[in-house]
């Protein structure tokens, strides 16, 4: 061990070197164990979470877009359906209207015919009744007239008229 006295003679403090190496090693360990490790782990975790969140946001947005598209398509379809339904209803209504009108026309025609027939009947009845009455009346009148004193002139007129009527 000749180099140790040599260092001593040169007044080199080699002990410091070793001491500093040890102190630095201990400091490295302490820093790593109590500060560096936890903090860098947390930084890494945070980095990962941020990137995860970004990925999630992208996929969420994609899904939202998909849903929006689906909804737009559904809306479009329902609009079409509604139009279809309305037009169907309109056609049906038109049909119903036509049938109702034609029914009504028919009925009206029937009623009219019936009414006409009834009227004819009534007229015929009335005429028959009237004829009968007229006959009665004329007989009554004739009776009355005959009962009255007929002047010669009147009698002549009456006969003339009667004759004239016969001629006609």
């Amino acid at each position: 061990m000749t180099f140790q006295p040599l260092f001593a003679a040169l007044n080199l403090e080699i002990g410091d070197l070793l001491y500093y190496l040890i102190v630095f090693a201990i400091l490295l360990w302490v820093v790593k164990h109590y500060a560096w490790g936890p903090v860098t782990k947390m930084m890494e975790k945070r980095r990962k979470q941020v990137s995860d969140d970004l990925d999630h946001a992208a996929s969420d947005r994609q899904r939202a877009e998909l849903l929006a598209n689906q909804r737009a398509a559904a809306l479009q379809k329902s609009k079409q359906d509604a139009t279809q339904i309305i037009s169907d209803a309109r056609t049906n209504a038109e049909k119903t209207k036509q049938s109702i009108i034609s029914d009504a026309d028919q009925e009206a025609a029937t009623i009219k015919k019936q009414a006409k027939a009834d009227a004819e009947q009534a007229k015929a009845d009335a005429l028959n009744a009237a004829q009968a009455q007229v006959a009665d009346l004329s007989v009554t009148i004739a009776g009355k007239v005959i009962a009255k004193n007929l002047s010669a002139e009147d009698q002549k007129d009456l006969v003339d008229q009667f004759v004239k009527g016969l001629k006609d």
Partner: peptide, 10 residues
């Protein structure tokens, strides 16, 4: 131990 230690620096 034959090594010089500068206590100031240490």
């Amino acid at each position: 131990l034959g090594l010089n230690f500068n206590l100031t620096n240490c």
